[in-house]
Amino acid sequence: MAEALSSWVRVREMMPPGHVRTPSYLRGKRGQLERTLGPFHNPEKLAYGLEAEKLSLYRVRFSMAEVWGDAAENPDDTLDAEIYAHWLEPCDAP
């Protein structure tokens, strides 16, 4: 069952070329941890047939206002995505 929303995190803004599982539209956006999943093998290694370490995977909930700003269709609607630990950094509540 989903845990209560907890810590605030920001998705790192890096844009390396190649296969990652962090959607571009979420880079730099702040959200709250919805639940902890995993650990799962790092897909950025698996994609190239390499030995892959295990990483925590988190479900992060973003508000549409955070993701799309003034262009949000309804600011209070939400978007949940799974993001690997190395793409997240702690941040303050907005």
Binding site: E44, L46, A47
Partner: peptide
């Protein structure tokens, strides 16, 4: 032989 991540990498 490979994982779904490899499938996706080439698709991208």
């Amino acid at each position: 032989y490979f994982t779904v991540d490899g499938l996706r990498r080439v698709l991208e």
